[in-house]
């Protein structure tokens, strides 16, 4: 058990170290997210009252797209240099290692998005009382985005031309998160109960965290064979 956790921790730390070696690449999702969210108001009329109504959707769609940015390269380097072979052969459950890698990716990709979300929400005129719900929703929802993106990356890792396929693969998995995440914020905006959608999001997070590493590991094993 201890050896298993040690191995998972080693994978986790390695991901963070690799990100630190390439800081420009690691900050890309955050920059993309901010630019995307801040471009939306420019498409509307100045002082448009509709902005507030669209704010939840804008934040969530921006987060979704930022999480997809570069996700297809997630496993490619490890497959190309043979590291994944060593993961498969180690005396540790392979899904656990994949899960550790995805968890590290969540910290690298999604955590900055959550931290930046309040600022973007203010820029989009979101009511202050809805910001807390937005953050909670992102906290539950972004693991779903990152883990399903990771699953799609694992599915396409053996097919070099499949980059275009990833949006189609992740759309069905991400749309419930988008619906509940943005829905919770809208409910908060009009003073409705936000518990329902948040519980739903949390349940989806648990489902993704437990099932998708196994599915991604299976897909990777298949691609390596």
């Amino acid at each position: 058990m201890n050896a298993m956790l040690d191995a998972a921790w080693a994978v986790f730390v390695r991901e963070l170290r690799l990100a630190l070696r390439r800081p420009a690449e690691a900050t890309q999702p955050l920059v993309f997210y901010c630019v995307l969210a801040l471009l939306f108001p420019l498409g509307l009329a100045a002082q448009d009252v509709g902005l507030r109504a669209f704010a939840p959707a804008i934040v969530w769609v921006s987060a979704l797209l930022a999480a997809l940015l570069g996700i297809e390269r997630l496993f490619r380097a490890d497959v190309d240099d043979g590291t994944l072979e060593q993961w498969l052969l180690a005396d540790v459950p392979f899904p656990m290692l994949v899960g550790a890698k995805l968890a590290a990716q969540w910290l690298l990709i999604a955590a900055p998005l959550i931290v930046a979300a309040p600022l973007i929400a203010l820029a989009l005129n979101l009511q202050p009382q809805a910001i807390g719900v937005l953050l909670l929703g992102l906290l539950f929802g972004t693991p779903v985005l990152v883990f399903s993106g990771g699953f799609a990356a694992a599915l396409t890792v053996g097919a070099p031309r499949a980059g275009l396929l990833i949006p189609i693969l992740v759309l069905p998995m991400m749309c419930p998160a988008l619906i509940f995440g943005a829905g919770a914020v809208r409910a908060a905006q009009v003073g409705l109960s936000v518990e329902g959608p948040l519980y739903f999001l949390a349940a989806m997070m648990v489902l993704s965290l437990t099932l998708l590493p196994w599915a991604a590991a299976g897909a990777l094993r298949n691609a390596l064979e």
């Binding site: 050896a3 040690d6 191995a7 921790w9 080693a10 994978v11 390695r14 170290r17 690799l18 070696r21 390439r22 380097a77 490890d78 190309d80 240099d81 043979g82 590291t83 072979e85 060593q86 993961w87 052969l89 180690a90 005396d91 540790v92 290692l97």
Partner: peptide, 28 residues
């Protein structure tokens, strides 16, 4: 068993020591 594929399982952005330490930790 030791498995050494034709690819060396070394990440280009890490040093040999970091790569090997990771491998040791992976294998307990």
């Amino acid at each position: 068993r030791h498995w050494l594929g034709h690819r060396s399982a070394l990440n280009a952005a890490l040093t040999p020591l970091e790569n090997l330490r990771f491998w040791c930790a992976l294998n307990g």
